[in-house]
Amino acid sequence: MTDSDTGQTQRPTPPAAISFARGAPSTDIVDVDGLKQAAVAAFENDPAGVTGYGTAIGYVPLRRWIAEKHGVPEDHVLVTNGSMQADAFLFDEYVRPGTAVITERPTYDRTLLGLRERGGEVHLVTLQEDGIDVDEVEALLAGGLRPALAHVIPNFQNPAGYTLSLAKRERLLALAHEYDFLLFEDDPYVDVRFTGEPLPRMLELDGGADSRQVVYACSFSKTVCPGIRVGYLVGPPAVIDRIRVRATNTYIAPNMVAQGTVYQYVTGDRFPAALERVKTALAERVGVLDESLRRHLPQATFRRPEGGYFLWVSLPEDEGHDVAAIVREATARGVTIVPGTDFLLEGGHNAFRLAYSGVTADVVDEGVRRLAEAVAAARG
């Protein structure tokens, strides 16, 4: 196209970017004012606590609050710089070159990376719409596999958005006791449920304070904001104490300002309403996403999640889809997605993950329309 005044060729204006890639909330649903107030309160109420080094166990009042929330003594809790730091410490404790580990297929890409970097022998088990295939887990165990741990994201799994059923939670626990392996319950999305009824944590089903087979991880990134970088572990005191030593040798103490701010925020009067606002917004977005996928990509299969940030889309395997080509075509149209191949050791070429947490409802349909064009173009 040529500008009639200048005679110069004009390039078409690129479409406004729409990202379904990153699992983070859009700023409009983060309670920025409430966090400002909580930060001020942290400095005013406990200046020594938030400005000092502290200890590797985390900010003591927050640690106490977490312990009370889960009904365990404080020595069962370690507060970390985000739940990924908690994951890393646990993997450092349990995974060596050749260590057998069970995970879901697909699973969070950073989980795969962390386990493989440590030389773990990763056994991916089929993820069904009601969670990991426990029959497949049992068959592996009966066949002689002896994993050090099984990593499971039970609620609104990343990347699929699926939730582990109560019956499967109970069977997994029974297998963990029978074959003596650790269940790592990685649960950052549990409090972001917008439909359906909550299910008990496996930590609770195993006795809470008396649990010996479960280590539980959670995060405030999804309920407060991702930039706060505060997560935690709950587990047997002997395990927590070994990880405390690792934490001490890694950073002496985690971020006390962030943890003090989180404590003031979650114990204040703004947090309940702010969390409800997040859940309401996410429910609206996933509703629009569901309708848009059915309209623009009727050949796709997916399950509408009851909470969390993610939805997994599969295209018919017999149509020869190439997700790398789809990603390229989508990017050219101003849409970003994450290919299914990122969450698997092999396969996933006909699938991708959509994160709806960071896109406002008014642009979801346009994003899916462009994505459908990308799918068609990639096949052509």
Results as ranks from 00 to 15, higher is better:
residue 196 G to V: 01
residue 359 V to P: 05
residue 253 A to Y: 10
residue 191 D to F: 14
residue 360 T to P: 06
residue 170 E to K: 15
residue 364 V to L: 12
residue 151 H to N: 08
residue 252 I to K: 12
residue 163 T to E: 15
residue 262 V to L: 15
residue 259 Q to A: 13
residue 42 A to S: 13
residue 52 G to F: 08
residue 330 A to T: 03
residue 214 V to L: 04
residue 169 R to L: 06
residue 249 N to A: 13
residue 33 D to C: 00
residue 324 A to M: 04
residue 323 V to W: 08
residue 272 P to K: 05
residue 232 Y to V: 02
residue 20 F to C: 02
residue 315 L to R: 05
residue 310 F to H: 15
residue 45 N to I: 01
residue 36 K to R: 12
residue 247 A to C: 10
residue 317 E to M: 08
residue 267 T to R: 00
residue 365 D to I: 02
residue 359 V to C: 09
residue 172 L to P: 02
residue 171 R to K: 15
residue 283 A to F: 06
residue 43 F to L: 15
residue 370 R to T: 02
residue 12 P to F: 05
residue 120 G to P: 05
residue 331 T to A: 15
residue 318 D to M: 01
residue 101 V to T: 05
residue 300 A to P: 03
residue 61 P to M: 11
residue 152 V to N: 00
residue 98 G to K: 08
residue 359 V to A: 14
residue 318 D to R: 01
residue 170 E to W: 07
residue 204 E to W: 12
residue 320 G to C: 07
residue 9 T to I: 09
residue 323 V to F: 07
residue 57 I to E: 15
residue 110 R to H: 10
residue 355 A to D: 14
residue 196 G to W: 13
residue 365 D to Q: 12
residue 115 L to M: 08
residue 317 E to Q: 10
residue 173 L to K: 09
residue 26 S to P: 04
residue 194 F to D: 14
residue 76 H to S: 10
residue 86 A to T: 01
residue 108 Y to D: 11
residue 224 V to L: 09
residue 235 G to R: 00
residue 15 P to W: 06
residue 10 Q to C: 07
residue 116 R to S: 10
residue 228 I to Q: 10
residue 61 P to V: 06
residue 303 R to G: 09
residue 243 I to A: 08
residue 197 E to C: 00
residue 33 D to P: 01
residue 141 L to K: 08
residue 139 A to D: 14
residue 153 I to Q: 12
residue 59 Y to S: 06
residue 250 T to Q: 13
residue 164 L to K: 07
residue 354 L to M: 14
residue 25 P to H: 14
residue 237 P to G: 10
residue 237 P to S: 08
residue 285 R to L: 02
residue 253 A to I: 02
residue 284 E to C: 03
residue 222 K to L: 14
residue 237 P to H: 11
residue 151 H to I: 03
residue 222 K to I: 01
residue 133 D to F: 07
residue 64 R to I: 03
residue 203 L to E: 06
residue 377 A to S: 14
residue 120 G to A: 14
residue 49 G to C: 05
residue 192 V to M: 15
residue 166 L to H: 14
residue 251 Y to C: 12
residue 173 L to F: 07
residue 238 A to R: 13
residue 277 R to L: 05
residue 337 I to L: 10
residue 227 G to H: 07
residue 264 Q to C: 13
residue 22 R to E: 13
residue 65 W to A: 15
residue 247 A to L: 12
residue 57 I to H: 07
residue 2 T to R: 15
residue 336 T to W: 10
residue 172 L to G: 05
residue 165 S to T: 09
residue 123 H to R: 04
residue 277 R to Q: 13
residue 123 H to K: 03
residue 192 V to T: 14
residue 102 I to T: 05
residue 360 T to M: 07
residue 15 P to T: 03
residue 185 E to T: 06
residue 297 L to Y: 07
residue 378 A to P: 01
residue 324 A to G: 09
residue 67 A to V: 02
residue 35 L to N: 09
residue 296 H to T: 02
residue 188 P to K: 05
residue 279 K to F: 06
residue 194 F to M: 05
residue 82 G to W: 11
residue 363 V to N: 06
residue 152 V to K: 00
residue 257 V to G: 07
residue 219 S to W: 12
residue 193 R to W: 04
residue 357 S to E: 13
residue 272 P to F: 08
residue 7 G to K: 04
residue 274 A to T: 05
residue 82 G to R: 01
residue 317 E to F: 10
residue 115 L to C: 09
residue 303 R to Q: 12
residue 267 T to I: 09
residue 44 E to T: 11
residue 98 G to C: 11
residue 1 M to F: 11
residue 72 V to A: 07
residue 225 C to L: 11
residue 283 A to N: 14
residue 236 P to F: 10
residue 3 D to A: 04
residue 342 D to H: 12
residue 101 V to Y: 01
